[in-house]
Design a protein around this nucleic acid. Sequence first.
DNA 1: AGTCGATGTGGTACCGATAACACAGTCGAA
DNA 2: TTCGACTGTGTTATCGGTACCACATCGACT
Lengths: 340, 340
Amino acid sequence: MAPAPNVTIKDVARSAGVSAMTVSRVINRSERVSPETRRRVEAAIEQLGFVPSRLARGLSRQRTGAIAVIVPDVANPFFTLIVRGVEDVARRSGYRVILCDTRADLAIEREVIEEMMAHRVEGIVIAPVSDRSRAHLRRLQEFGVPFVLIDRLVPGIDCDVVLGDSVGGARILVEHLIGLGHRRIGFIVESDEVSTARDRRRGYEEALATAGIPLDPTLVVRASVDPAGGRKGMARLLAGEPRPTAVFTVNNLVALGAIEAVRAAGLEVPDDVALVCFDDIEYASRLYPFLTVMMQPAETFGTLGAQLLLERIGDGARPSRRTVVLPGEFVVRRSCGAAG
Amino acid sequence: MAPAPNVTIKDVARSAGVSAMTVSRVINRSERVSPETRRRVEAAIEQLGFVPSRLARGLSRQRTGAIAVIVPDVANPFFTLIVRGVEDVARRSGYRVILCDTRADLAIEREVIEEMMAHRVEGIVIAPVSDRSRAHLRRLQEFGVPFVLIDRLVPGIDCDVVLGDSVGGARILVEHLIGLGHRRIGFIVESDEVSTARDRRRGYEEALATAGIPLDPTLVVRASVDPAGGRKGMARLLAGEPRPTAVFTVNNLVALGAIEAVRAAGLEVPDDVALVCFDDIEYASRLYPFLTVMMQPAETFGTLGAQLLLERIGDGARPSRRTVVLPGEFVVRRSCGAAG
DNA sequence: AGTCGATGTGGTACCGATAACACAGTCGAA
DNA sequence: TTCGACTGTGTTATCGGTACCACATCGACT
């Protein structure tokens, strides 16, 4: 109830009849404190409601014990899982995690990164917005903050990376469609400034080439990576002549919008248009196991990313940069028209 | 590339040939600096790559400009939206937001709250785990940190609250089922230690009473608030004799599990069991508009909560505590068996 | 001419913790 | 008995900023 007079280590010291240093030793569990003194100090802490300031501690110790996770969209189950993975590993190693959402906006990403530097976090796990994040990442490098890229790499930035196998995954998805007899296969993808988009496009093109299907540029459309983008992209594809019989979308949320567009056109998935995409949507698939997807081990992205980061924090000089590529799991459901 | 020698305000001062105070004035945009000096200082900041430390600033200013949002599960779309609402309002007011996920775990909640006190956040928007969060909240009060409860209130804690109309919402859902002819209506709910659970139970009971249907305790089952809980809860209900013809689940994730259990039993929703619940799952409903729900204005919970908090931070002495109750929107889809 | 207010800048003392060192007392070994 | 190692505790400086006050300068007004 009291209006919280900021209790400091000195207040505790006075109340316990010891010096501030001794209180500091108690709250940091360092050994050199007699049991009797420790008890008195702990009683004083309890009684005064003392909570040591992280600000002061961080300033004095020159380390904060915090790392940041930065993702474009916490609401996307794919990134939510990544965050969870990072948190688990970090917490187990005694690090706190600060979670930041950039909403896939480069300007917000810049702010957030600046903010994290100001917070003096000891490292960052980041799924960057796009190649244009390069400037922000360079700034981190200049500033000496170790970081690990997750899900997307950025050309020109040399660091640890954890990726899915976008090329291979896309190939498998598209080859599956081809195997089902499709020849006109659309692709809804985001800007080429995102490495996963480039890689998935490459997988798409390779699969077509292998099957001897010529690439039709009108079947590849750009869209924002959200349901709205999916709607627009699919609408464009459906307006083409002849329209594609199957579509591959760059991720889960785009697929949702694409399906809405198909329905809005009075058509059905998979009867009129077969559909495959990257990344599952757990809750949706529980309710309605519909989407055929390349499911990526998102939580593992997070745990591995955090491990790499913690290693690098421990030994910044380590020269070799590691790139981990994790294969996805191909899950066939109904949207591709293969399953009963 | 340089190993980041921590550049401080003094380095900048030296490099610009001014005092530290003047640099401080420049980075805080305070007026009293000549244009010429400002230019020199800005050049030095740029050249040295200086980023002012939030730790030092917070310590010295005795305020951090940060607030925390604490939710039980960021992956739940309901809470994700709340977070988004808080972030929007806070950012617009110049506050930074620290996001914390307690995973509905009381111990983690305690840690996280302690952590936020140590961070000296200026306020907290929190969806508490349960009534047992009372101890943590009291600690916040003692510590003098203003906070706003979202979605759940905690008896004995007097503060600003933003709630959904759980009693009324539950009544509407259950009355709808009754209107469809159901008499044996099950209820899967979490522990009575959560205010929303209590309130929804009350709405459930009131609706039954109004319709003259006697309350059958075997139709009310406790479960954890996640898909696993929903599965178990529904399994229990289905094992009853005679089994319920309709079920109301306390929230969206529980509904998912419940549906899985129905299917696992070789039955169908809504043919064999009608189903209604609180809170929509946006992505799932886009793909498959199936769940009949009481949709709550989650993002508004967040924006209002943040506004109340910011007001209180601005004027801690404000005596009157406000409770805002927001009505939900009843969305009829197929799971209740009413829609075609 | 002298006083006043505004303007731009610097000096100093903190904010709350910890690192590094100092030091008094105790105890066992030489 | 004396020395050294060890234990428990205190002193001081410092981390990187900011609040507060002092002060020099300058033009304007009585």
